[in-house]
């Protein structure tokens, strides 16, 4: 079984657009949306949810106001500025659930409670089984949720005898991204030809190298700035990274999104669809 992750560093470069088209092109696969705090793939797949599960990401501290004497000990210990002593409250957005306050409260007024941080789903989609999640509003532990849905996807792949898992990643290089690439077989980085795009590409490449994961690059919206695209190609050559494809800017991408279809399904005759098909063939080669 092979696991590929589509990443970008910078947001909005086309990860989900490309993943959705891969979903339509690949045979016998499991699809995963690892961007759990701003998931979008379901808008294209319009999945039928088969299973819904709760996700408890961690704990949060709560003050029992009747027992609290406002002594301030918790505030001294908390390193996250989460204690509001005047209101005898813990700011749930800042609390990391470490439980230090609860251990040292002299009156036992602080309890730790399990945090329902979101939901994860196994769904049926027109393009294959789909594992996805919804992190609760303003919740933390997105990395834990990503690790969880990836392990569920692997189990599902074994059950369905699928040889491939396609993960749509999130922007950045932090906790959820690290959780989405550890143990994966291949990272495809979608980059746009802008100075910011190059800057962010380099940091994702460093991250993938750190975890020893082979990496390929796709340059999206190449016509925005062909000179920058050349710069990206040069950087990739110098660093032994293969540019697997480049895609033109085409407003049919937005139209396909509005129609809730992968680009290759809605506009199969457009140049961009042909380029995405070529890209997918290159990815398959790189995977084998």
């Amino acid at each position: 079984m092979k696991e590929i992750v589509v990443l970008s560093g910078k947001g909005g470069t086309g990860k989900t657009t490309i993943t959705a088209s891969f979903a339509a092109l690949a045979h016998k696969k499991i699809l995963v949306d690892c961007d759990v705090d701003a998931a979008d793939l379901h808008l294209i797949f319009k999945p039928t949810v088969l299973e819904t599960h709760q996700f408890f990401g961690g704990k949060s501290a709560f003050i029992d106001k009747d027992l609290c004497t406002a002594c301030g000990k918790c505030g001294e210990i908390c390193r996250y500025d989460a204690v509001n002593l005047a209101n005898k409250e813990i700011n749930k957005f800042l609390c990391e659930g470490c439980s230090a306050c609860s251990h040292f409260c002299p009156t036992g007024a602080i309890k730790m409670e399990d945090d329902l941080s979101g939901y994860w789903f196994i769904s049926h989609s027109p393009y294959g089984p789909f594992v996805h999640a919804r992190l609760g509003i303003a919740e933390e532990n997105s990395g834990k949720l990503v690790s969880l849905i990836r392990s569920k996807a692997r189990a599902l792949a074994e059950k369905e005898k699928a040889q491939l898992i396609i993960n749509d990643g999130s922007p950045g290089i932090g906790c959820p991204v690290i959780a989405s690439i550890t143990g994966a077989d291949y990272v495809l980085i979608v980059v746009e030809p802008t100075l910011s795009g190059i800057h962010d590409l380099k940091r994702v490449v460093q991250l993938a190298n750190h975890f020893n994961i082979p990496t390929g690059v796709c340059i999206n919206k190449i016509d925005i700035n062909p000179q920058m695209a050349d710069k990206i190609s040069r950087y990739c050559t110098e660093n032994n990274i293969k540019v697997l494809g480049s895609l033109p800017y085409d407003n049919c991408v937005t139209k396909a999104q509005v129609a809730q279809k992968p680009v290759v399904v809605e506009y199969p005759e457009r140049e961009i669809s042909k380029k995405i098909q070529d890209l997918w063939k290159e990815v398959e080669k790189a995977l084998s």
Partner: peptide, 14 residues
């Protein structure tokens, strides 16, 4: 702020 809606964003806008 960074993209998304989880802890790094909360920390940025709080």
């Amino acid at each position: 702020a960074p993209p998304g809606t989880s802890c790094p964003v909360i920390q940025s806008i709080v």
